[in-house]
Design a protein around this nucleic acid. Structure first.
Lengths: 223, 223
DNA sequence: GCGGCGATCATACCTACGTATGATGCGGTC
DNA sequence: GACCGCATCATACGTAGGTATGATCGCCGC
């Protein structure tokens, strides 16, 4: 099995990694085969500890996780990963699950919850959905990260001015509010536009929204 | 049972309605008592048909639904309500449910999925969560509806100008783009600001974003 | 056919924005 | 101590935005 398609767009499913966590070596092996047969990379772990100890791939992917695991349970691992900011979508498998367990997992954001035995196709469908969700999440996170990187080049004053400007205040109002002359506000404002990589106020407002900066303010009609 | 609390804030839990759908009159009755005991209004239905035929309350609320129902199943009813734009959060109950059923319901947006018999407190917790979700949803929908109402007072030209202006174009660019003089664009722009009830471009941009109007445009640094 | 509304444009005036030039002061760093 | 980044402000000029006044034109409904 050679892989003739290495130079593909990074969002292509074939460059994604499925992280398999199950204490049954047989299950790991058959899932490994299943995912590799459709061109996916895999990483196998026998326990949550192994997963947390080992290094996770950086690229797109998802986790396929048995609920009943040695040490920490799958659901606990889910919470733990969420707390650690590891945001791979999770698909649960279980041999002896019950409804409350599945509901808890889904409430916590699981993509799917499959009872063993499951059909290969069901698992592949779930993984496809998970990878789509991951790709979506990554795209949003990347955009937001770029904006945040730009925002971090701003000085304290520039951030202050940005907040007020994107809230809809005029330069003179900003000046009065933070005790500056209008010309100084203009300079800061110009710096903000340059550092944030925008050429219109509209785009600056959008970036400010993405960052959660700026108070929306009351501007509804009359005085 | 008089209702001494008619003049309350609309978001107060006690003014919310729980819509109960179950074919078992005993269950209906005991759920009715449970919810009324904590100050909630109730509406009882024995089948999906009754629910769809009857008139639903306009105010905040949620639906408590048995999965197994005469005629349409609870899950089908869920899809149907979604298609009809009825967005009450749904809590499922079941006596003989299985995991795939619960997963399907949760994927489709159910708040919770309780197996009978359940503890009263679990049901109340689920309803509380559902009402919170509903309140959140209503607040967002109301805001968006207000903005849309304003947007609908705009003429075709005004909407066109609004889209370009909120995309970050200058008046003269908008004018060239749609073949007008700059002064005409200014007039439309002024009308847009007035009709949309905003006094700053920043606020207009935010409303445009909420409406999904305006193309974000490429403004990243260099030419 | 007349009135109203929307659309179009011109002139004019004022305000707001943006930037260049030049200058001062402060708090760090090398 | 010299240098640098940041912040501050003034003057000045050019562009962009906003609105008022006034006018023409086309469409639609009464």
């Amino acid at each position: 099995m050679t892989r003739p398609n290495q130079a593909q767009p990074p969002t292509a499913p074939s460059s994604a990694t499925v992280i398999i966590v199950d204490d049954d070596a047989g299950i790991r092996s058959s899932l490994d085969s299943l995912f590799r047969s459709v061109g996916l990379e895999t990483r196998l772990f026998g326990s949550p500890a192994e997963l947390l100890g080992g290094s996770l791939p950086n690229g797109p992917g998802c986790i396929v996780l048995d609920v009943r695991l040695p040490g920490v349970s799958g659901l606990d691992l889910q919470s733990q990963l969420i707390r650690q900011g590891i945001s791979y979508p999770i698909i649960f498998m279980t041999g002896h699950g019950d409804i409350p367990m599945s509901v808890r997992a889904m409430k916590a954001g699981a993509v799917d919850f499959l009872s063993k035995p499951f059909r290969d196709q069901d698992m592949l469908d779930a993984v496809t959905a998970a990878l789509e969700r991951d790709a979506q999440h990554r795209a949003e996170a990347a955009t937001k990260e770029d904006i945040r990187t730009q925002y971090e080049t701003l000085t304290a004053r520039e951030r202050e001015v940005m907040a007020h400007v994107t809230a809809g205040l005029m330069n003179k109002q900003v000046a009065a509010l933070i005790g500056l002359s209008e010309i100084t506000v203009k300079i800061h404002r110009g710096n903000v536009m340059r550092k944030m990589g925008v050429r219109s106020l509209a785009d600056l407002v959008r970036k400010a929204e993405a960052l959660g900066v700026s108070q929306p303010r009351r501007t509804t009609d009359q005085t």
